[in-house]
């Protein structure tokens, strides 16, 4: 093999019909007994139940209605259910850490229910503010967009989080922080993602 043969396979857009492969029930049919990403935390998973919702907005101020968002998060104790997390054997029961949600075809609204993640140690051993990793794919997006969602009611932890601190402009930093919203019994957060222009969300090279 040549060096080019061993470079990473180049990305291509997921296109407008990505639901067929990633979430066929959203496309209108159900060939699989179970779709992945439908449940991040099971009924017996300990932790504080939360609901997160938002929209993805494009440069024309129009909601993106054909995107899929994937979520990867730690459990309430800050443990990832993956063998490379040294504490993975203690990960919460019924917790996959993985969610996949499609935007509504009419409104663009997306939402998922999960538990609030605990703090995870960063590469330097210091704790990071609780956060979720998001990955966005859609028609017009050539390489999946990575970002993080932090919680508006974690002001003290957010104030010392290395990533948030590395973003100098307060207005840009604020694009990664989901606002607490008053709604019902389950604590809810609002996280609107702006792809381009005024209030553009910070996207990450992970």
């Amino acid at each position: 093999m040549t060096a080019q043969d061993l470079k990473e396979t180049p990305s291509q857009t997921a296109g407008p019909y990505l639901h067929i492969g990633l979430s066929p029930s959203a496309a209108g049919f159900a060939p699989y007994a179970r779709e992945f990403g439908q449940q991040i935390a099971g009924p017996d998973t300990p932790g504080r139940r939360i609901r997160i919702a938002g929209r993805i907005i494009d440069a024309d101020d129009t909601p993106v209605r054909d995107a899929i968002i994937e979520i990867w998060q730690a459990d309430a104790a800050g443990i990832y259910p993956h063998p490379d997390d040294p504490r993975h054997a203690q990960a919460a029961p019924g917790f996959t850490g993985f969610g996949r949600v499609a935007c509504d075809f009419e409104t663009g609204e997306w939402a998922f229910e999960t538990i609030k993640p605990g703090s995870v140690e960063g590469p330097d051993g210091s704790p990071r503010a609780p956060n979720l990793n998001l990955w966005i794919v859609a028609r017009g997006i050539n390489l999946g967009l990575s970002t993080r969602l932090y919680f508006g009611d974690e002001e003290a932890a957010n104030a010392t989080d290395p990533l948030l601190c590395a973003i100098a402009e307060p207005a840009r930093r604020a694009t990664l922080i989901a606002a607490s919203t008053e709604s019902g019994e389950v604590p809810a957060y609002r996280f609107d993602i702006r792809l381009q222009g005024e209030g553009e969300t910070v996207f990450l090279d992970i």
Binding site: D58, A59, D60, T62, V64, W72, A74, Y80, D84, D85, V120, E121, G122, P123, R128, N131, N133, A138, R139, G140, I141, N142, L145, S146, L163, A166, I167, R172, L195, Q196, G197, E200, T201, V202, F203, L204, D205, I206
Partner: peptide, 16 residues
Amino acid sequence: ARAPSHPLVAVPQGLS
């Protein structure tokens, strides 16, 4: 209309 105009912010890889 779907491409961010700011460069990506590099993040040191951690457990996540």
